[in-house]
Amino acid sequence: MGFLKPFPIQEQTVPVILSGKDLMGIAQTGSGKTACFVMPILEKLQNEEVKKDRNIQVLVLAPTRELVIQIDEVFRAFTENLKREIRTMAVYGGVSINPQMKGMFGVEVLVATPGRLLDLIEHKALSISQITHLVIDEADKMFQLGFEEEMNKLFAMMPATKQTVLFSATLNDKVEEIKNRLTIDPVLVEVKPDEIDIDKITQLAYLVTEETKGPFLRYLIKEQNIKQALVFASSTRSADHLAEKLNKNKIPATAVHGKKSQGSRTGNLKEFKEGDTQILVATDLIGRGIHIESLAVVINYELPRSPLDYIHRIGRTGRALETGTAITLVTEADLQHFRVIQKKMGKKVQLLRTEEINLHGY
């Protein structure tokens, strides 16, 4: 699969999970954490007998549909050459529940969002009373995004004895709350964010006006011959409008955001990953769950609200062992906020002027 050596978080967590101990892994998005739990769990399962019932053995919980689909894809990629077939399945809301209910028999690894999982349990489609492994990905978000009540209901249905693995970008009060709620004392493995090298990302900023922002983006894509880029907008409306303008100017673009159906989001993402779409316009919520190998360019068409979101955005490129470029379009009104982002990041970004550029025809 192209892995030559384990990433730091994998090196430290895989042995702990293989040993059967509970684990709390703290690492940023894009540090290779999904493989940390996928590999050892599959290693254990392939040596066990096939179970043919509706009792799930491995439950992986994640906050967004995109992340659930992505984790399931990693499980499927790693199961291809095992001694025996291990059935995995992803379940999430926003699509019909019936196929999910029908497909549940014999599933050993279930990756789910909490709400849809509860719906399936209420429909008697499965049971989590005999799980042997529980994985909670992005645990820091799980209680913050209003999942608290759903999570508590699910915890009450699980057996007391199981291996629990938590992954989180930060160690905060909510994560402590989950630990206490599950009465676990996990091995703590932390890979500090500065180990994810922001220096591998070339950052550039261009000073534009509101009027020239759109034409300048199109100029940039065409003049710099940008083959593929993930472009961030601040709202669903802005993302749709931007994608529409790019398409009108013969730059193949599509938007992904929370207001699009799951089918359309998955399809758009697939087209982008396969290189059929040149520009993917995303909002912050969706941007967090997107993993694209070797994404060379990220463009901030509009600045995010928080400096942390800015780092998450540009972190979509320069992932794992790659290098990348992050471009930000800044208006006069954005300047103060952009200074704050640079200060928090601890890195100065060169601001280039654009008034001399002829944007006629863009």
Rank of each mutant, 00 (worst) to 15 (best):
R305I: 11
L285S: 00
G275C: 06
A282M: 02
K273Y: 00
K245Y: 07
E355L: 12
V340I: 09
V349M: 14
P304M: 06
E244I: 00
D276R: 12
R265I: 02
S234T: 12
G324C: 11
I286W: 00
G318P: 12
T317Q: 11
A282E: 01
T317R: 10
I341Q: 07
E322W: 07
T236D: 10
L352Y: 14
V231S: 03
I251N: 08
D284E: 04
T277A: 09
D334Y: 04
H312A: 05
L280F: 02
F338P: 10
E244P: 01
H312I: 03
H312T: 04
I292R: 06
A253E: 04
L308I: 04
S234Q: 15
K260L: 11
A229G: 06
V297T: 15
D334V: 05
P252W: 01
T283C: 08
Q262W: 00
A239W: 04
A326Y: 12
L308A: 10
H257V: 03
V298K: 02
G267S: 14
E332L: 06
D240K: 09
L352N: 14
E293I: 03
L351T: 11
K347L: 13
T254A: 12
L285V: 02
K347G: 09
G318I: 10
V231Q: 03
H291E: 06
R319V: 12
E302D: 15
L321T: 14
I299Q: 09
R313A: 04
L321Y: 13
G287H: 01
E322L: 10
A253D: 06
R353V: 14
L335V: 12
I327P: 13
I279H: 03
Q342K: 08
R305H: 11
A233V: 05
I314R: 08
V297R: 10
A320L: 14
R288I: 02
L335W: 05
I290R: 01
V298Y: 05
N300D: 13
L295E: 06
R316F: 04
I314C: 07
H312V: 03
A243Q: 06
G275P: 08
A233N: 08
V297C: 13
S238C: 10
T277R: 14
L246A: 04
S234L: 13
V231T: 07
F338Q: 09
A320N: 12
D309I: 00
I327V: 13
K248S: 04
R316A: 03
V349P: 14
A255H: 08
A243H: 06
S235L: 09
T236M: 14
V330E: 10
G289T: 02
I251D: 07
R265M: 02
K347N: 13
A239V: 06
P252T: 07
A243S: 13
T328L: 12
F338S: 09
I279T: 03
L351S: 12
I286C: 01
E244F: 08
Q342W: 06
L335D: 08
A229Y: 05
T266D: 11
L321N: 15
T323E: 15
R316V: 03
Q350W: 11
E332D: 15
A229M: 07
F272I: 00
L295A: 08
T354R: 14
I327R: 13
T325E: 15
T331I: 07
V298P: 06
T277G: 03
T325K: 15
R353E: 15
K343I: 05
L308T: 07
